[in-house]
């Protein structure tokens, strides 16, 4: 249904309304706080739960991962490739731990599935590279967050 808004004579004359509008834009220009984030100097603070670049958490310099294969199983993008091996003390560990980050959809399912608190998504979001990189074990071993 078309409802016609009732307008007073002054409103129909437009000119007064135009001047009011000009006042609004001028007020915004001069006094309103600006929302722009000056990117390289200042950065947006993301929530701690932000799902950014991956890392494998380590305790005393040894990765938590036991190569249980839960994360490659749950991964919807099938981007985690783990080859399991055995340490001299019979502990299972990942010989190879690769994340094809170009396929990753950052859903965070791996992080949820992990029973050992090993695979983590940090708050880092600047992930551009000049090569098509696959994150290998050494790269992921870098501790990138406090989660």
């Amino acid at each position: 249904m078309l409802v016609k808004a009732k307008k007073s004579f002054l409103q129909r004359f437009y000119l007064v309304e135009v001047i009011k509008g000009l006042g609004i834009t001028m007020r915004n220009m001069l006094f309103a706080p600006k929302v722009t984030i000056q990117y390289p100097e200042e950065r947006r603070k993301y929530s701690e739960r932000f799902r950014g670049m991956h890392y494998v958490k380590a305790t005393n310099g040894v990765e938590n991962c036991t190569a249980c294969m839960l994360c490659p199983t749950v991964c919807p993008a099938e981007c985690i490739h783990i080859v399991a091996g055995e340490r001299p003390d019979k502990e299972k560990y990942p010989v190879q731990f690769e994340i094809d980050v170009l396929r990753c959809c950052f859903c965070g399912m791996c992080e949820e599935a992990c029973p050992k608190d090993a695979i983590k998504l940090s708050t880092i979001y600047e992930m551009s590279q000049v090569t098509r990189q696959v994150y290998d074990k050494d790269y992921l071993a870098e501790q990138r967050g406090n989660k």
Partner: peptide, 10 residues
């Protein structure tokens, strides 16, 4: 710049 400032940008 004018449009940006009016729209609360820089």
């Amino acid at each position: 710049r004018g449009s940006a400032l009016m729209q609360n940008r820089l």
